[in-house]
Amino acid sequence: MRREPPRQPKRLPPLLRKEGSLWIAVALTTLMLLSACGGAKNAGNSATPVPMRVVTDDLGRAVTIPVKVTRVVSLAPNLTENIFAVGAGDRLVGVTTFCNYPEQAKAIAKIGDTMTPNMESIIALKPDVVFVSTASQIEAFMKTLEANGIAVYVTNPTGTVDVMRNLKALGEIFDTQKVSDDLIANLTQRINAVANLTGPLASHRERPTKVFIQISKEPLFTIGNKSHLNEWLFNAGGQSVTENVDTAYPKLSKETASALNPEVIILSESDDNKEPNDAFKNSPAVKNGRVYKVNADLLSRPGPRLVDALEQIAKDLHPEKFK
């Protein structure tokens, strides 16, 4: 009787054996990657080349973008507001978790916050351009995006002049110059209207009303002369009592705060900044009830709403002139 030979497993074709499955995975992945790369190349080079143009961002870098920009990501809440303001909000495919204005911005895909945006989410959205104001390790961040064929436009507007320039540049990028020009004309006219009532926009003269801008109550933060709000306040007809502090947002000594005797206190209103610091309890501002609140978002996000805040504060500072 023949002994049955030990049962041997049926030999599978090499690719289906156990060790083969790994190879399949590798091969498939490579294939997919190759085709993806090839696809991108084809789109760029052959059949219908996307017409490109070159614009210059705030860092002076030449940025190559499509003539027709259709998909963009904004990494700062004020840039989101500005893009909406020039009539291109519908082309935003990604914004930050901070972007809560206008209302439509809340519905757009979130890619993290300004300082720590998520690279993978951004790339997955396949934007033409990413608008960046700042980010941690911005150099490396820009390199990675550009290596993935995504244009990076750096702009960080601060004062009203910057905002106007930013709106103009955005109008050109999105080809919505009509909207942006009208907006700029409107904003300029409103700023001038305020200036006509509060006095000329010169930075040398003194304003009679001494104002303290409180950014946070505890610890006490305010503005110095490097903040755009210094000039903004001047245009509204007030003079910052901390304008000789040589930085943007200093933590101020309460002793100094108490000695400053502001006539008006403006609160950049947020959860932890709803009333003046105790150091001001004897100041003319508190004694005369001249404490005004402005939504912190308006002050911290240079965009068209900075002019809304300008009008509001000009009226608060000079009620007699706005009748």
């Binding site: 000594s253 002793e255 100094t256 108490s258 000695a259 105790d278 150091a279 309890k281 004897n282």
Partner: peptide, 23 residues
């Protein structure tokens, strides 16, 4: 010593506030 210079004697009301309420 402090951010504000205070005299040793004859403090104004405001200076007293800085000394007693803050410093």
């Amino acid at each position: 010593l402090g951010a504000e210079r205070l005299p040793l004697f004859d403090l104004s009301e405001q200076q007293r506030s800085i000394l007693y309420d803050i410093r």
